[in-house]
Design a protein around this nucleic acid. Sequence first.
DNA 1: TTTTGAGTTGTTCGA
DNA 2: GTCGAACAACTCAAA
Length: 482
Amino acid sequence: MKQRAIVWFRRDFRLADNPALRAAVDGDFDGIIPVFIHAPDEEGDWAPGGAQRVWQHESLAALADALEAIGSRLVIRRGPTQSTLDDLIDESGAGAVFWNRLYEPGLVRRDADIESHLADAYPELDVRHFQADLLHEPWTVETQSGKPYKVFTPFWKTISERSIRQPKARPSQLPEVWSRIGSCDLDDLGLRPAKEWTAKILERWTPGEDGAQARLETFLEDTVDNYDNDRDRPAVHGTSYLSPHLHWGEISPFQVMHRAEEWLSEQSGGAIHEHIQSFQSEIGWREFSRHVLYHFPETPDEPLDARFKAFPWEAPDAAFDDWKAGMTGIPMVDAGMRELYATGYMHNRLRMTVASFLTKNLRIAWQHGERWFWDTLFDADLGNNTLGWQWAAGCGADAAPFFRIFNPARQGERFDKNGEYVRRWVPELAELSNKHLQEPWNAPDKALEAAGVVLGKTYPKPVVDLKASRREALEAFEQVKN
DNA sequence: TTTTGAGTTGTTCGA
DNA sequence: GTCGAACAACTCAAA
């Protein structure tokens, strides 16, 4: 007798290149039940933050639409996951449960518990899970001495030499879901707060599988040919903007890598090859972040370099609030922080700049910044966020040497030459000339007056002296060096 | 086991 | 204005 299969969607909100779904389709079941189970508390301290949830809502809605378009239906339930799966199995008489693997420490534990529970409770059940979110799973990559990699370059070199599978076909039709299998309403999950900024945030983005595919095509057609240069310029749309799509699994790294290769093979000319390679290595960083997180599961909370546990951090104070609000009086920092709060996104160049400023100039522990990013970024991702903050603080894998302290004004001069980005997000300085825009505290009174700027009134004075705080950070690092 | 080369993204200073 | 060196050693990964 044919049986039904449950496909448990978790963070793989796509129909194409979805191995769990593909296995159900190929398995000749007479029913396939796609289900999403809402159980954020099972992710512990690192349940999706506010901005992530907005995206999650939209992405689930897109997935539900896509399933309906091919004859199926997304079943939405509330957790706990274990009992919910039990209920679904009992209600449907399912003989199989399939899902795609994830690699965050909390989810690895949770999924292992579920798997062993299902094996105990339903000995006949066909339980399978698949590789879908990573090109190379963390336990398949190790150094010659059998240890996890801590340096990106050799890690990427090793996995780049391996082949990756072809993306799996998108099902063109799915069996109808038995009407007796009930679902709750997506709106009842409370993922999308009824706030004005939700709509504003979503202006620039199209969550969902179709949006992800379109984004990749736009990037390849319009942007990648100057990726190496433009990706560092925050005023320019020089990056792929794929991060939230990848985070929610609306597109897989297999699809991205193959499409990039395919696109490259259609081009002529030499330089484009370099740009594509740079782009692909960013996918490599995504792999690396999960590799490090999997092998060092404490790193969202603890520095990988244990010496930094003794670092003399300052307690988060009023300056921390200024940082969050984009009111530090340092134009580049404020521009980045305001972009983040207004749009749920921040250009990578600014992520580094504001992280360096928080950890080195304000000397506030990276965990505080990490938590703020977690709640405000659309694309907040435990692996990337952890790696990024520890890198900036100098305590993580492949971390910047501690003396590499960004000067936000220099960053502005280098990467926002015309001040376009700063003027966009810090309009109260818009009338200042480029010469003074990045360091208004050094501008002559005359220039400030002409631009209508009154420091301390229309725009804050700097919360910290860049030069002195840089020196103090270097001294503080001396203390933990050995 | 020992050695060797190298390590995402910077800034400042002085010639 | 441009350029190279100094900034500090340490750890990683492979030979």
